[in-house]
């Protein structure tokens, strides 16, 4: 189990780096698609099939198509690499690395006593739906406002007339 998990982790890292160092935007989008699929495998590992399929449908089916579509509209073909090679970005990267180590260290010290919340782990659609419409009702409503804002915003920015 652990081996499969880490093989998948290796692949998600490779795909993420593929996005990071890609030179052709479309190829990076493809790498991102594979990254999303490898993320969905974590959900399948944990036994949450519903989330795994939602991940594939929404990210792979929706978001990647959107990104690829915009790349084609904008005509972003093979561009000269746009890496920000400056002292500033290297300092930023070092700070981020320190931060990542700090998170791992701090959390590693703190998650030793991890107590299970309840005897069973509900991965069914019904269980998730129950949680959404009881405890998470208000976040659900706010998410709907957020989606409305996002739709209007995307429309405002992308339309031709001012």
């Amino acid at each position: 189990m652990k081996v499969i998990f880490y093989v998948n982790a290796f692949f998600s890292l490779v795909f993420a780096l593929g996005v990071l160092f890609g030179k052709n935007p479309l190829r990076s989008a493809l790498s991102l698609l594979l990254f999303f699929i490898s993320i969905s495998l974590y959900f399948f590992f944990a036994g949450s099939d519903y989330l795994g399929f939602v991940q594939i449908i929404v990210y792979a089916g929706g978001i990647i198509v959107l990104i690829a579509f915009v790349i084609i509209i904008l005509g972003l073909r093979r561009e000269s690499p746009d890496f920000d090679i400056s002292l500033r970005s290297f300092v930023g990267i070092i700070l981020l690395a320190l931060f990542a180590l700090g998170v791992l260290y701090g959390m590693g010290k703190s998650i030793l006593h991890f107590v299970p919340q309840s005897p069973y782990f509900d991965t069914s659609v019904a269980g998730i739906g129950d949680a959404i419409f009881s405890r998470y009702l208000l976040p659900f409503e706010v998410a709907s406002i957020l989606l409305l804002v996002g739709v209007v915003l995307a429309f405002i920015f992308a339309k031709k007339e001012v």
Partner: peptide, 30 residues
């Protein structure tokens, strides 16, 4: 909602709503 929420995740969602709405205000003369 930010000022009223007592749940961290609720806080995050209202923060996102706020940020994106402000984006609409800033970029109105796009």
């Amino acid at each position: 909602l930010l000022a009223k929420s007592s749940d961290l995740f609720m806080l995050f969602l209202s923060l996102e709503t706020l940020s994106f709405s402000l984006l609409g205000l800033i970029g109105i003369l796009k």
